[in-house]
Amino acid sequence: MSSTTDTSSNPAGAATGRPRTGGAGRTGDAPAGSARGKPGGRDLAKALPWIAPALALILGVVLFPAGVMFYNSTRDISQSGVDKGSVGFDNYVEVFSFPYFWPIFLRTIVWVVVVVVFTVLISLGIAQILNKAFPGRRIVRLVVIIPWAASVVMTTMVVYYGLEPYFGVINKFLVDVGLIDTPEGYGWTRNPTTAFIWSIVIAIFVSLPFTTYTILAGLATVPGDTIEAAKMDGASPARTYFTVVLPQLRGALSVAVLINIINVFNSLPILKVMTGSIPGYDADTIMTMIFKYIQNQHKVDVASALSVVAFLIVIVIVAVYVKVVKPTREV
């Protein structure tokens, strides 16, 4: 049922009503009344061949692994990977009774909020600059894509090695300008707090291109006459930005924030590289904890349970976001 709702409804933003008339046209010679009144039955049968590949893909790539993940989370799977039968929700009990679970949970929230907020704020600025015409703008726009084009692991490794004591360039620089007084540098990636902060910096850096381009696309849709009108009325540039431009970026911003929340929440590689050598659980988020369950403790079952929990957390965050921000509401 949801699939039919999905195909006949309008995509967000394009609320001109045109797709709906198009949809009615598609039903062809069927009586208009019955098509509108009972969209099920025949319509569905007609639509099925067209949407079947997409449905198969969703089933195979999204729902089936989700099912397996949930199934695994209720099993007792031995270290070598043999399924030893059902244990009900014991794995969930283990996840929640782990003494570091709540600190890890809070750290995950800090991680998501800080990275997303800074990414969006910085991107708003960059997008504003890139929206102005200046010589070489095309090149600068290309340069902004670079963090996106490079592999996240590669970008992280570059910073990681830069931060290494003894031979890292960042450490060497800080020693040479006199900010650090130990000659081998400071172990930035060896201490939970500094490693976590640097991870946040990298996460912001790699999230900027996508966010900037989404906002840039949003800026392109802001009609010039609204800005002109504001100017005519004598509004200051700041006032023009906050009361005319920003509200019209609502659609672009809400997409950027939503996708960033999900992306950042699920990000493993940055933290894995930056905090991987730190003992204990003082720099872990839920994602790195899932990884540690698999890699260090070989508990695929518990890792699955934590994955299910993570999945629910994302859904709750997204639901709250959609409810509070109402990204689909028209300006």
Partner: peptide, 16 residues
């Protein structure tokens, strides 16, 4: 629904 499906897809890339 779309947003949740997106969240699901993104979450599952790691899990699967």
């Amino acid at each position: 629904f779309g947003a949740i499906a997106l969240a699901a897809a993104a979450t599952l890339t790691l899990a699967s």
